[in-house]
């Protein structure tokens, strides 16, 4: 499997929460040769099973979310501009003057803003929110706009993937990086565990897809794969970078949604150390992931989070280090080969 070609394809596909069909179609095709069963559940999660190489295996759920943050069209103004809302966590400050693609026909548009020539000094300092902004798709009337776009259509940032040598840039690495890692894991299987691969929907609006997927699967343990915050630019104070590029997969000890099972955290650290794979512990207390819902399903599921550090997530362009992604795949492969019920012994 060419992981970089897959990441490019996934990154450039639109997949705002609740509208993950394009991403799902790419993944379905990519993993089909490697899995024994494949299905799409009621909420749209893509769930594949890869049977184990042993009898009585652990049932391991490995999950990554397909959806990305984006925009939703609310209505067209009489002049043909589109009012919109945010879907998921987006900083208002990054919206103005961005190119976007709207709807399933990927209509090009731009989030309009007055040129600097016309701005007073007070106006220049003001942060414009979604209520002040419109998407301009070049229509000059409501009728013209509504021929191209319907209320409820999603819009994504119009970003081209690019290979920067040791690093790559593109949109939605949160969590297309995780999706790519998970697809690569299936391609490298099978393992001595029954692998339930879940490409989940609706993470960005409240961890919704993973919960129902986990309920359906009822696994012995789960690992969520993420593209997570790297905040490793220059700082005024000697403080945590959350994660750093080039230092290997980020393991979570605790975030706002989950306390990672200490047995699994220890196991992942040991696996990395034995295999000589660098790793880092993500700054505890920051963010939340699908593991936050998965671990509370039914009678509980011991859960962990492994992430590829990504700069600038939830913006138009994210950036990751190729080696971090390779190391993440290697760590997960090693973990799936090594894991046994002993890991869960108390």
């Amino acid at each position: 499997m060419d992981t970089w070609a897959l990441l490019k394809q996934l990154s450039e596909a639109p997949g705002v929460s609740g509208d993950e069909g394009a991403v799902r179609a790419i993944l379905k095709e990519a993993i089909a040769p490697y899995v024994d069963e494949i299905r799409v559940d009621a909420l749209g999660n893509l769930i594949a099973v890869q049977r184990a190489t042993v009898e009585d295996p652990l049932r391991v759920m490995v999950e990554a979310h397909m959806d990305e943050v984006g925009l939703m069209v609310i209505r067209a103004d009489k002049d043909g501009y589109l009012q919109f809302q945010k879907v998921g966590g987006i900083d208002d400050r990054i919206l103005p003057a961005k190119a976007v693609r709207v709807g399933k026909d990927a209509i090009p548009g731009v989030i309009g803003i007055k040129p600097i020539h016309l701005l007073g000094s007070a106006e220049r300092k003001k942060v414009l929110g979604v209520d002040d902004l419109r998407i301009d798709i070049g229509a000059s009337s409501r009728e013209e706009a509504e021929r191209l776009v319907k209320r409820g259509d999603r819009a994504v940032f119009d970003t081209t993937f690019a290979d920067l040598g040791p690093r790559v840039k593109g949109k939605a690495f949160d969590d297309r990086a995780g999706c790519t890692v998970l697809a690569a894991l299936l391609a490298a299987g099978p393992y001595p565990v029954e692998l339930h691969a879940v490409f989940a929907v609706q993470e960005e609006i409240g961890l919704r897809g993973a919960r129902v997927a986990a309920y359906g699967i009822d696994p012995d343990l789960a690992i969520a794969l993420e593209g997570t915050v790297a905040d490793d630019l220059l700082k005024e104070k000697d403080e945590s970078p959350t994660t750093e590029l080039g230092k290997g997969p980020a393991l979570t000890a605790m975030d706002r949604s989950v306390i990672v099972d200490p047995r699994l955290l220890r196991f992942l650290i040991q696996t990395a150390e034995q295999a000589g794979i660098p790793y880092q512990i993500k700054q505890p207390g920051v963010g939340g992931t699908d593991a936050g819902r998965i671990h509370l399903v039914r009678e509980g599921v011991p859960s962990a989070v492994v992430a590829v550090p990504c700069r600038y997530i939830h913006g138009p362009v994210s950036l990751l280090d190729k080696q971090d992604m390779d190391w993440t795949i290697q760590l997960m492969e090693a973990a799936l080969k090594r894991i046994s019920p002993d890991v869960l012994a108390r």
Binding site: D238, E239, S240, A253, M254, I259, Q283, P284, G285, V286
Partner: peptide
């Protein structure tokens, strides 16, 4: 509490549990 960062001088930053 949980340690979130150890600075150059060995002081530990932390978050709440």
């Amino acid at each position: 509490v949980m340690a979130t960062y150890v600075d150059e001088k060995g002081f530990i930053r932390f978050t709440n549990i």
